[in-house]
């Protein structure tokens, strides 16, 4: 049984008041997400990611197609008891405190007062909300609200969580915490389905991704299998680089381009054919110190631009 499965899920909106024209927000999305996966749902803004999530949450109803969560139809209350949802840019009742909000949502699951107290305290600790839990949410920053949003999504210890852009509005520290939390959920056996337009989020977390452009699925599978995201070279940053060592490396084709960052401080671009370990050991043997080594890939942004510019060909590639 899949955690999530959709079959030709389609949503049309009618736009325009006098002469409504159909607008395809989601076009026949067929997708399967296995249990225990961290699944990245990627695409540029307006690709249909939020539409898909809203369809799965039954905030909107599909024009055609069907979907199941945990092998059951969407409207099923049994399913709702076992899922969690973080909307994009979440907003909650600003007259409540973080504690009260989670207590309220807990009560909707039918938890007793003692149970709720226990869960709420643990959740707020988990998402890193301390003394602020007694403040009304109107005083919360966007990042804090995002944490509250994550807490409310997992108030029921769900089997599947849906996070819509969970990293947006967070500073780097916050992003790292959310990543850590998502992995923790995965380790508990929870399926994590999250949408993002930032590739690096997906790279560090996902077992699989799906890429959506203009309401259509253009690719899905393990990120490393997607051709466009294979490593295309390496970026190596070193200090203590001597001129002779640099010259030699350039001569044997190990370095394509060198950018001087400071005295004896260089960023080097290595071709994909080179084994970066060897280049590093050659330089360190000459007294250089390693600062960083990063694989170079096409960014998601570049990829989207290419997709939009050249849709038909890439769709075929995506389906392959």
């Amino acid at each position: 049984m899949d955690a999530i499965s959709t079959e030709k899920l389609t949503k049309h909106y009618r736009v325009g008041f006098w002469r409504p024209r159909p607008y395809v927000a989601l076009d026949a999305l067929t997708l399967e997400v296995g249990r225990g996966e961290v699944f990245g749902f990627l695409g540029p803004n307006g690709a249909g990611k939020t539409t898909t999530l809203k369809l799965l949450m039954q905030l909107i109803f599909p024009t055609s197609g069907r979907a199941e969560i945990l092998g059951r139809p969407l409207g099923d209350l049994v399913v709702r008891r076992r899922i969690g949802y973080l909307p994009e840019n979440p907003y909650f009742y600003d007259y409540l405190t973080a504690e009260e909000l989670l207590d309220y949502f807990g009560s909707l699951f039918g938890y007793g007062a003692a149970e709720r107290r226990r869960r709420v305290a643990a959740l707020l600790d988990e998402v890193g909300i301390g003394a602020e839990r007694r403040l009304q949410l109107r005083k919360f920053s966007k990042g804090m609200l995002q944490r509250v949003g994550i807490a409310q999504a997992i108030v029921n210890d769900p089997d599947v969580v849906f996070f819509d852009e969970p990293m947006s509005g967070l500073d780097p520290l916050g992003r790292r915490e959310v990543r850590r939390l998502m992995l923790k959920l995965r380790d508990r056996g929870c399926t994590v389905f999250f949408s993002s337009h930032v590739l690096s989020d997906a790279e560090t977390l996902c077992s699989r991704v799906a890429i959506l452009v203009g309401g259509r699925l253009v690719a899905s599978g393990p990120l490393s299998n997607l051709l466009a995201f294979q490593v295309q070279g390496w970026e190596l940053v070193l200090t203590g680089v001597t001129d002779t060592a640099l010259e030699q490396a350039t001569r044997c084709g190990q370095v394509v381009r060198a950018t001087r960052l400071g005295a004896e401080h260089y960023a080097l671009e290595l071709p994909v054919t080179t084994a970066p370990e060897r280049v590093v050991s050659d330089f360190t043997a000459c007294g250089a110190r390693l600062v960083s080594l990063t694989p170079m890939r096409e960014t998601l942004e570049d990829y989207f631009v290419r997709q939009v510019a050249d849709a038909p060909r890439n769709r075929e590639w995506g389906r392959a």
Binding site: K54, M57, Q58, L59, L77, R80, R81, I83, G84, Y85, L86, P87, N89, P90, Y91, F92, Y93, F105, L108, F109, G149, Q152, A153, F162
Partner: peptide, 14 residues
């Protein structure tokens, strides 16, 4: 309007 209904309707309520 404030979209608080999104998280609410994902809870087990009709």
């Amino acid at each position: 309007e404030r979209r608080s209904i999104y998280s609410l309707l994902a809870k087990p309520i009709r």
